[in-house]
Design a protein around this nucleic acid. Structure first.
Length: 293
DNA sequence: AACCAGGCTCTCC
DNA sequence: GGAGAGCATGGT
């Protein structure tokens, strides 16, 4: 298959915008550290975003015919944006499901980002029973407080940097009752063997993650999906619950039974569950948000 | 002013 | 092992 991108010295040109839309990618719920930039003067520019991962950053300028990823860390972001995976093929396989076909039509440019495991662990502990804008703000404050300063932004803190943080430090970043979960989980991560963990079975990985304080089934699935590119999980949150109730509730599962809903979707989408979840999440959330305004 | 948010922990049965 | 209360904080 032909590559969808061209690698240059300090940027990547993505040539196929049918499988790459930076708004879809960043606003489908998988990442918290990004900012929309004011659109530049050129009239063909559709979106411009800055994205941050660990200590790295990129500026993405999307037009109607291509997307430019401008960064010092070209190879890192080729992997980060999963540019060597064929999303046309994935989308085609998922089109059998009628609802998903609609969702893909809406968020056609979604790709699953390959993010850092530790950053996802911390981020999704904060996400529990929280609102997305406030999650973003808390994470940003934690970066400013404990992360290394780069040029015009702060890196996500390393494990050693976060080991210096106590509960009131986190409380000042607006994480609320999750402060103690963070302190506990950060200490536990010090003795965490990631490569051993990744070699375990799906079920074992889910169980191990739930031994971290503040990590239940949903957060565990998010960490696996976004932090280890594991497509065999289907995180069920409030938005997916709405998806289930509006589009799929033809079965006899009580709409409050998260684990049963999760099982239903995994049985439906199998090893493409992670992709499917993101199309559905983005579709439902955008529709509801736009309805309000 | 209650109610809710990318749920989880803890208690009680 | 399943159901239910309580949880920080801020927006609507």
């Amino acid at each position: 298959m032909e590559k969808i991108y061209e690698k240059l010295q300090d940027k990547i040109i993505v040539k196929d915008v049918n499988d790459f839309n930076i708004k879809h990618i960043l606003e489908c719920g998988q990442i918290f550290r990004y900012k929309r930039e004011k659109t530049l003067e050129q009239k063909d520019v559709v979106y411009a975003y800055k994205v941050f991962s660990l200590d790295k950053t990129a500026l993405i300028i999307q037009t109607n015919c291509n997307a430019k990823i401008i960064t010092k860390d070209v190879d890192y972001f080729i992997n980060f944006f999963d540019l060597n995976t064929n999303y046309s093929q994935i989308k085609q396989q998922l089109q059998n499901d009628k609802v998903l076909k609609e969702a893909i039509n809406y968020g056609y440019g979604i790709r699953i980002l390959k993010q850092n495991f530790f950053e996802m662990l911390i981020s999704f502990i904060i996400s529990a029973n929280n609102r997305i804008p406030r999650i973003q703000k808390s994470i940003e404050m934690i970066c400013e407080k404990f992360g290394t300063k780069e040029n015009d932004y702060y890196a996500f803190p390393t494990l050693n940097q976060l080991l210096l943080a106590n509960e009131s430090d986190f409380r000042e970043c607006g994480v609320g009752f999750r402060d103690k979960y963070l302190v506990s989980s950060i200490r536990m991560f010090k003795n965490f063997d990631l490569s051993f963990f990744l070699a375990q079975s799906e079920q074992t990985k889910q169980q191990i993650l739930q031994t971290f304080c503040g990590v239940g089934p949903k957060v565990a699935d998010c960490i696996l999906l976004f932090g280890s590119y594991d497509m065999n999980v289907f995180p069920v949150d409030t938005w997916i619950k709405k998806v289930y109730n509006t589009f799929y509730n033809t079965t006899n599962i009580p709409s409050s039974n998260i684990l049963k809903i999760r099982e239903f979707f995994y049985n439906t989408f199998s090893n493409l569950s992670g992709y499917a979840q993101q199309y559905l999440f983005y579709y439902k959330r955008e529709l509801d948000i736009n309805k309000k305004n």
